[in-house]
Structure formats: C-alpha cells, structure tokens
Amino acid sequence: MNPVSTLVTVTRQTMLVALIAIGASAASMQTAMADQPAKQVFGAAKLPAVLPARAIGFYSKGCLAGGIAIPTDGPTWQAMRLSRNRRWGHPDLIALVEKLSREAAAKDGWPGLLVGDIAQPRGGPMLSGHASHQVGLDADIWLTPMPQRTLTAAERENISATSMLRKNTLQVDDRVWTPAHARLLMRAASYPEVERIFIHPGIKKKLCDTWKGDRSAMGKLRPYYGHHYHFHIRIKCPPGTSGCRSQNPPPSGSGCDKSLAWWFTDEPWAPAKPKKNDKPKPRKREIQLSDLPQACSVVAAAPGPASEAEVTFGADPIARIARANANAAGVAASAFPAVPLPGRIPLPVPRPVN
C-alpha cells in the first residue's frame, strides 16, 4: 500500500477512535447532569461550548451552542456589569447589536450603546434575574447614552441606568427623554431580523404620540412591565436553524390602540385577588437539565476553549476565541439529534398579547 495512503488511513482511524471516546465521555457527563437544576449547570459555565453556533429551544427554555461575546469596548458601545459574565450571544445577535451601535451613532445622534445582559456563555436558565435570555437571541440595551469616555470596571458594576419616567408615574419624563431616544428605538425596531422590542408602556405611548417618521415597525415595540431604564431586543431564530422556536409575530398594526390603553388602567398593576376556596399553590419546581431540549445536554457537556488562559476578560480575545467556535468544531454538527420543539411556556394572566 502507498505509505501516504497508509498514513491517511491510520490518521482517520485515530480521529474516529478519538471522536468515539469524546462522544462516550460527553454521554456519560450528560447522564450525570440530567437531574441537576439547569440554572446550576449553565450558571457554572464560564466559557462557551466549542460547537457550531446554534440557538436551541425557546427564549425562556433553551440554551446556546457556539456563543460569542461582545467585546467589552467597541467604537460605539461599552459592556456593563462584566462580573455577571452575561455578554454572550448567538453571532447574529452580537452582529446586530454592533450594527445598531454604529448606525445610531452615525445617523441618530446617539453617542453609543451601554450593553446590559445578553446571555450566559452557554445560555440556559440563569441563577438570578431573567426568565428569558436563554438562547442567545435577547439583549438588554440601557436607555442611558454612552459617555464620551471609557468607564472603569467599578463604574460598570455600580452606576445605575436612568429611568425615563417621572417618579411614581407611568409617564415619560421630558427632562430625560430626547428625540434621540425615539430614533434609537425606531431604528432597532426597523431591522427585519428583530422580532420585537420590549419597552415600558409609558415609552410606547410617548412614541405613539410623538413619532412622525415611518411607523411600519411601531408594532414591534411591545409594552411590558419594567423596561423604563433599558429596552430588550429579541431577534428571530436564525434562518436554517433546527430546534429553535421563534415567538409568534406581534399583532398587526401599530399597537397604539386599546391594547396599549389597558396598561394605563389599574388592572395590570393590581395584585391578583385570591379566589374563594383557593388552595395554596404548590411550590414551583425547578427546571432540571432533563427538562430542556435534549441538545442542551450536549451543550452542557461539550468542551470549552482549550484553556481559560486563552481568554482575557475585558479585552477582544474573549470574542475572538468564541468567534472561532464554528470553524473549530465542524465535526460536532451531528452531535445534535432531531428533537421536538418545547411546548409553549405558560404565562401569568391577565396578560395582553405581547
């Protein structure tokens, strides 16, 4: 046999044996982790899974493979709350956030974005905070404009975002709200990959009452609790992604109608009245790893970058190492079995279509 052919055959056999060993090890780890609380598994991951980029499951019940981190600082953004390690996302989302920062700075008079939580390195449920942000397709952007200097690490941890509301009201405070805020939000909503943007009802009303430009994307701006100091961008599942479920499209129209007026009644804000003979609700069961889509067990058990030394938090290398995920692990694409999409996540009522 040709010596080169022999070498190629031996090399292929060696790679196959190695892949089988890796697969067996991963399967063993998946079994061991299956009955652990999912937030403990994903909250403990400090680095992404070296797998092709993929959003898996639903925004509030899923995980993220091949995540990348937005760099701590860019020409038109700065990442906040670095200690949380929640600035990871699907490459499509990170690209969109960076694009929004550039275009808003160039065209809307917005000096730059302060970027809040995106997702954990491997997505999944968080130890605290968000119910969503699990698949790397959600990002929080502060409504505070970026200062014309680089914030210190301490400032990123301790300064607070600015509320857009008058104290103890649902109305926007015109002393802090500017036309640039409106332009930023409407630009974000205009991108076709954006599914919806969550904002406070008072901000939605301000836009309904004052925006004079193109209103075709107004319906993507969805009123919701909180969100008066930041807005929440949610993008659709990337094209061609299997096992990722987008949210149903928002209702047609601008949303400047009775559905918005509902938020200015007492009903949304009043505590639910207990019904006669109501039994105490059982304690909510923690989501286990086995409750998530099956592919999330693969993500949880997958190797990360070769070493933490390769990643320098607070500098570009953390993004560069993660951006290499897809190229570094092309053989791993078959690790994801075809799995059914998760069921609809129940939400408290009453609640409008959002």
Rank of each mutant, 00 (worst) to 15 (best):
C256R: 01
F264V: 02
G240E: 01
G255K: 00
G243M: 00
K258M: 08
D257W: 05
S242K: 15
P251C: 05
E267A: 13
R245W: 06
S246L: 07
S246W: 03
K258G: 12
W263N: 05
T241Q: 14
G243E: 04
F264D: 01
W262E: 03
W262K: 04
N248K: 13
L260M: 11
S252F: 10
P250G: 09
P251M: 09
G253F: 07
S246V: 11
A261S: 14
P238M: 08
N248A: 15
G240P: 06
G243S: 04
P249Q: 01
D266F: 07
N248R: 11
N248G: 14
T241Y: 09
S254R: 03
W263V: 07
S254Q: 10
S252L: 12
S259T: 13
C256E: 06
S242N: 14
F264R: 00
W263Y: 11
L260Q: 08
D266W: 01
S242L: 14
S242M: 13
G255Q: 01
T241N: 12
E267N: 08
P251T: 08
S259Q: 03
Q247F: 14
P238S: 11
P239M: 04
T241L: 05
Q247T: 12
A261F: 02
P239H: 05
T241G: 12
S254D: 15
R245Q: 15
G255T: 06
P239L: 09
K258N: 13
D266Q: 13
R245H: 12
W263E: 03
T265Y: 02
L260K: 10
S252C: 08
P238L: 11
P251Y: 04
F264T: 04
S252Y: 09
T241D: 14
L260S: 11
S259N: 10
P249F: 06
P239S: 09
W262L: 07
C244H: 04
T265I: 07
D257M: 07
T241E: 14
G255D: 02
W262V: 01
E267C: 07
W263P: 09
A261D: 15
R245P: 02
S242Y: 09
S259V: 01
S254F: 09
S252K: 13
W263D: 06
K258D: 15
T241F: 12
S254T: 15
N248Y: 05
K258Y: 06
S246D: 14
D257P: 10
K258Q: 14
S254A: 12
F264A: 06
R245Y: 06
G240D: 04
N248M: 12
G240I: 06
F264Q: 00
P250I: 00
S246N: 10
W262D: 05
S259D: 12
R245T: 15
W263S: 05
